[in-house]
C-alpha cells in the first residue's frame, strides 16, 4: 500500500509505503528470501489475516503555507517482483484545514 499526500500544485508532501506479506529466511542468516527453494520458515508475517482487519494511521505534517492536501491510497498486489503489479484499489481524498 502506498499513501501519498500532495499539495494543490502537485508537489509531493509525503509518501508512506506499507508492505503486507509473510517474510521468510533460510534460518542460516538474517536475509529475507523469496522463492520456495531458498525459504525455510517465516520469521515475520504482516499479511492480511482472515477476520482480522488491518488498520493503519499515517500522519503527514504540511509544509508552511499549505492548508490542503490530496491524499491517495493505492493498494496493489506485487507478485514475485515489483513489475508484476496487480492494482486492487485506489482511493483519493481531498483534505482541507480550512472551514
Amino acid at each position: 500500500m502506498v499513501v501519498t499526500a500532495k499539495a494543490a500544485d502537485g508537489k509531493e508532501i509525503g509518501k508512506v509505503e506499507k508492505h503486507y506479506h509473510p517474510q521468510a529466511t533460510n534460518c542460516r542468516d538474517t536475509k529475507m528470501k523469496y522463492g520456495a527453494q531458498w525459504k525455510v520458515a517465516n520469521l515475520r508475517d504482516t499479511s492480511f489475516q482472515p477476520m482480522k482487519p488491518k488498520k493503519e494511521t499515517i500522519e503527514f505534517d504540511l509544509p508552511e503555507g499549505v492548508r490542503a492536501a490530496d491524499v491517495t491510497v493505492d493498494l496493489f498486489y506485487e507478485l514475485g517482483n515489483p513489475e508484476q503489479k496487480y492494482p486492487i484499489h485506489t482511493i483519493t481524498k481531498k483534505v482541507s484545514l480550512d472551514r
Binding site: M1, P50, E56, V71, L97
Partner: peptide, 11 residues
Amino acid sequence: PKVVVSTTITT
C-alpha cells in the same frame, strides 16, 4: 498543520 489518514483493509 497535519493530515491524518486512517486505513482499514479487510479480507
